[in-house]
Simulated assay, not measured.
Amino acid sequence: MPGVRADAARNREAILRATEELLTAHGPDRVSLDAVAAAAGVGKGTIFRRFGSRTGLFQELLAERAARIGEAVATGPPPLGPGAPPHDRLSAFLDALAVLAAGNIALIAAHEQACASDKHADPTYRRWHDHLTALVRELRPDADAEFLAHVLLGSFDGDLVRRTTSRGGTARLRTAVRDLASALLAPAPGP
């Protein structure tokens, strides 16, 4: 991270790793800022200064996980990146989200709890929603693209991801989300 002191960068990484480990071991309900501070070897004030709150901490951890997808969407090779037909980009993006969600179920659940009052305003959610909305508009100009993007993102609800992957793993989640997208984006029946 350019412009960040070495000790601040180390603390940030220690805090994010400790949060991730605590989420995996204990689930979101038992991850307090006190526990994160103790596990990271920093003071609670360090967490507040860097992340502002428990919500900010979970948002930052999810944003870090999502950054690779964002880079691939913006500048990566097709089909996730520019240059592929919208259907291929949509499938690749949903696959990437499925892999991210399946590999970070505790984080997704913690993020949902922390952002419950307005998850649609979360920066990561907004980026994902904006990308899906644009793809849906290309595929179905007659549809309510914003609404359909919310429906597709709803497929990555933490409890739903946990339940789906417990009986079929990431492959089942990927297939189910692709099937949903196909059903939602099928051409509208004629008059």
Rank of each mutant, 00 (worst) to 15 (best):
V73F: 03
S53A: 10
G56M: 12
W128G: 14
S32L: 10
V73W: 05
K44T: 07
T55K: 14
K119D: 01
A74H: 00
A92C: 09
L33A: 10
V136E: 00
Q59R: 12
T133D: 06
V42A: 00
D122V: 03
H129M: 03
A116F: 04
P79S: 08
S32D: 11
D29R: 14
V73A: 09
E112Q: 15
F51H: 12
A109F: 00
D122I: 02
Y125H: 09
A25R: 13
E64D: 12
A106D: 04
Y125R: 11
L22P: 00
D130E: 04
W128R: 12
F93N: 04
P86I: 05
A116L: 09
D130W: 01
C115A: 08
A74W: 01
D130M: 03
L97Q: 09
R126W: 03
G52R: 00
F51N: 02
V99A: 08
T55Q: 13
L61M: 04
Q113V: 03
A102I: 00
A92W: 11
A106P: 00
D122E: 15
L61S: 05
V36G: 01
P86D: 04
R30S: 13
I47Y: 14
L57Q: 10
P82H: 12
I108T: 15
S32F: 09
F48I: 09
A109L: 02
R30D: 12
E21R: 14
H87R: 11
L80E: 07
L61T: 04
A84N: 07
A121P: 03
R126D: 02
L132S: 08
K44F: 04
L100E: 06
R65K: 14
R68Q: 10
A74P: 01
T46Y: 03
P77F: 11
L135E: 00
R68L: 09
T124E: 09
Q59Y: 05
G103Y: 09
R30C: 10
T24E: 13
F51A: 08
A63Y: 13
L57E: 07
R127T: 06
R49H: 05
P85W: 10
I105L: 05
G70S: 11
T133M: 05
A116S: 14
R126A: 07
K119S: 03
L33T: 13
F58D: 00
A66S: 07
D118W: 01
P85G: 14
A40F: 08
F58S: 00
F51S: 02
I108F: 09
P82S: 15
A38H: 08
L57P: 09
R127Q: 06
R68H: 12
V99K: 02
E138V: 02
R137K: 13
F58C: 03
A74G: 04
Q59G: 14
R65G: 07
I69F: 00
Q59N: 13
L100N: 06
